[in-house]
Amino acid sequence: MWDQVTLALKDSLSRVLSSLASFVPAVVAMLLAVLIAVIVGAVIQWILCRILYGLRFDERLNDWGLSAIAEWSPGRSPTRLVGRVVIWGSIMIGVLVGVAALETTLMTAMLSRLIAYLPNVFIAFLLVVFGSVLARFLARGVLIGAVNLKLQSPHLLSLGVKWLVLVLSVAMALEHLSIGGEILKLAFGILFGGIVLAMALAVGLGSKDVVSRSWERQADRQAEPADAPFQHL
C-alpha cells in the first residue's frame, strides 16, 4: 500500500516537474522575445527619430497645416510620437511572439482576430486625423470670416465649429471600431441635438431685442436713400 502511494507521488512529481521543464523554456522564450523586441524597437526608434529630425519633420508638418498632431504629441513633437508608436508596436509584436511560444492555439485565435480588426483601427485613425485637420481649417476660416464681419464673439463661433467637427469625427471613428454601439449613437444624438437646441434658445431668447432692432434698422435703411459706399479700390 505504501509503495503504491509512493509510486503515485513519484508519478505526480514527475509529471509536474516535466510540465515545469517544458513550460520554463517557453517563459524564457517569451521574456527573450520581449527583450529583443524592446532592443530592436529602441534601435529603430533612434534611427527613425534621427532621420525625422534631420528632415525637420515637425516644422514641415506645421507648414502643411497639420499642427493639430503636435498638440497631441509628447513634448509637442510629432517625431517623438512616431518614435513612441514604433517602440510600443515593437513591444507588442514581442509579446505576441512570446505568447505564441506558450500556447499556439490561443495565439492563432488572437492573431486572426487582431488581423481582422486592424483595418478598422487604421480607418478610425484616418478619420480622427482627417477630422482634426478639417476642424482646424474650418475653425480658422470661421474665425477670420467672423472678424471681418465684425461679429463680437468670433472665437466662440470658431471654437464651436472646431469641437462640432472633432466630436463628429471621433464618434465616426468609435463607430468604426464598434465601440459603444447604440449608446454612442444615442449619446451623440442627444449631445448634438442639445447643442443646437441650446443655441436656438440662446439666440431666440437672448437676442430677441437685438434681432428686432436689426430688422427695424434694415427697414429704415430701405426707406432712406442709401449712402454711397466708401471706395476702397
Binding site: 480658422r140 474665425l143 477670420i144 467672423a146 472678424v147 465684425k150 463680437q152 468670433p154 472665437h155 449712402d227 454711397a228 459706399p229 466708401f230 471706395q231
Partner: peptide, 24 residues
C-alpha cells in the same frame, strides 16, 4: 469729398482683428 470714414468703427475693426486673429 467722397463718403467719410468712421474712425472709431475702423479702429474697432482693427482691434477686433488684433484680439482674435493673433494665432493667424
Amino acid at each position: 469729398d467722397g463718403p467719410t470714414i468712421d474712425f472709431k468703427q475702423t479702429v474697432d475693426a482693427f482691434r477686433l482683428g488684433l484680439d482674435h486673429l493673433m494665432p493667424v
